[in-house]
Design a protein around this nucleic acid. Structure first.
Lengths: 296, 296
DNA sequence: GCTGGCTGAGACTTCGGGGGTATCAATTCG
DNA sequence: CGAATTGATACCCCCGAAGTCTCAGCCAGC
């Protein structure tokens, strides 16, 4: 039994005429008759009542016609779906997101995904630290990770999505809040709030290095897991923090922000498995890169 | 694209090994590789990642595997369903039923159909007069008609289901109800209630002929459309009626029944279109005939 | 690191069967 | 009754599915 048999049968059933059906199928009538006979023999069922003057479906033929049509449609659907998956227009995508990107990039990215790849079933995991993301990425729990460099692992490929300037987050009533802009050195005597501990959060290391290059050891008083907690701590007057610019958009009452002198910034990169050829991932990356080009 | 391609792909996807898949398919490995390549070319999609050491499905391959399995299952289902229909185990059956059979035969017949042909979707149309049934039968509104002979139309084939003795239905307080059995002649002076008018109800003609053969013209006072109405009229004392024995089972209060002397009876026959080769109809007829043989 | 055994792909051949042509048989209609 | 139409049969051809042989890459083991 082959699809050929179903196609031929559907044609004959629809035309109710072997000659016309053969014409429609671009073939001669005798082989068509033979194939239909073969189909009936294989099923052990008479599908068509033929006289030399007319052809009509039997009861079994009617139900088989329905089923045959459904099978042929399913074959086409299967091809179309496979093509969509291969084109990256359909599939599943798990995106990991570092703290600051969770609030600034994630919403727009989710909207873009929904608009441009509506058949892609995507899931975001927000507020993940860089090392967790890399581990999840390699363990295939995440397909695309938005995090802060550096990423050294050769099994991971990265693309810069954007560069965020560093700013200082202060309690509104803080002495330094009266200044229009700040230098790193201004933080020498301040209590600092940072993400997690060294080696876990990339921002932690960046802030510490920044202080040391300005000639002092940072006074780290509080470590937090989530960016929203960090800003809340600042608002509560527990200290100040150096954060990427988009954090300012969080809008926590009691916290204010000041630019940091010097061209200090930190990249936000999209990381994927180097061996990942998933078309959905490629499309998602393309989306990010196109967007980065448009906004930079 | 042929089912062959789907079968081959499913085998390779399941074995994750061209050699083993070829073995399972009772063929050599090179043509299998070729057919898979052909499938991928036709779809324009890579379904399998192959190295010389291992074969694994791409994302598109996974969804296509699901669809291919579904298609192959649907093809088998289609064959099975067509076979059931051809065997008369599945389908639709409309049964027409004459008045007296509506109450005596129909319930048992319906139960037998449901038990023996559970996949047959059957519909009964009760209380139909013989001419209506024949017309419905030929117009294909009914597939099997239970009615009283004679049926002359050569386009209709009949089989006797059973023979019902004729009995007399009387009001309980009727003078003749004191007798144990009655003769036709006893009805000479009685008002008769019959079904519809001559040419419509077969029983009408039978009763009239019976009277005339006994040497008198029947005094027909009431004509009714349904058997239940007829018995109700009798119970109401409007007259007496000659009816087939099963009508007694209706159990209408106020009516009683007495045997009729002489071997008077009327056949109940099952009529089908002579050119109807529907297997469901054949099975239903077989059911009736087997049952008739068992009870006669 | 080299070798040997797997594994999938390519080159070439074979042959079965799908499809074509010619024709027949049966039915309908003028 | 003959002409036309239509599905089935007989027969042939040739395409392509399947087979054989072989190679190229890759991993394992010594």
């Amino acid at each position: 039994m082959e699809l050929r048999h179903l196609r031929y049968f559907v044609a004959v059933a629809e035309e109710r005429h072997f000659g016309r059906a053969a014409e429609r199928l671009h073939m001669a009538q005798p082989p068509l008759s033979q194939q239909i006979q073969q189909l009936e023999a294989e099923l052990g069922v008479t599908l068509l009542h033929r006289t030399t003057r007319k052809v009509e479906l039997t009861g079994a033929g009617m139900v088989y016609l329905d089923r045959a049509r459904a099978v042929l449609a399913a074959v086409d659907d299967a091809a179309a779906e496979a093509q969509r998956v291969a084109d990256g227009l359909q599939g599943r995508l798990v995106v990991g997101c570092v703290g600051s990107a969770t609030y600034s990039l994630l919403p727009a990215f989710a909207r873009a995904l929904r608009e441009e790849l509506p058949a892609v079933d995507f899931v975001f995991r927000g507020e993940m630290l860089a090392p967790d993301q890399l581990e999840s990425l390699l363990a295939r729990r995440v397909d695309l990770a938005l995090l802060r460099p550096p990423v050294e692992d050769p099994a991971v490929r990265v693309a810069v999505v954007r560069r965020d300037r560093l700013i200082v987050a202060l309690p509104e009533d803080h002495r330094l809040a009266r200044r229009k802009r700040l230098k790193i050195g201004d933080l020498r005597e301040e209590d600092l709030i940072v993400h997690a501990s060294r080696g876990r959060s990339v921002m932690h290391g960046i802030v510490a290095d920044l202080c040391r290059s300005a000639g002092f050891e940072p006074r780290i008083r509080h470590e937090v897991a989530e960016t929203s907690t960090l800003v809340t701590f600042v608002a509560a007057g527990l200290g100040v923090a150096v954060v990427p610019q988009p954090v300012a958009e969080l809008g926590v009452a009691g916290a204010t922000y000041r630019p940091l002198a010097g061209n200090h910034g930190v990249d936000l990169v999209a990381a994927v498995r180097a061996d990942d050829d998933s078309p959905v991932v490629a499309r998602a990356l393309g989306l990010l890169v196109r967007w980065q080009e448009r906004t930079s």
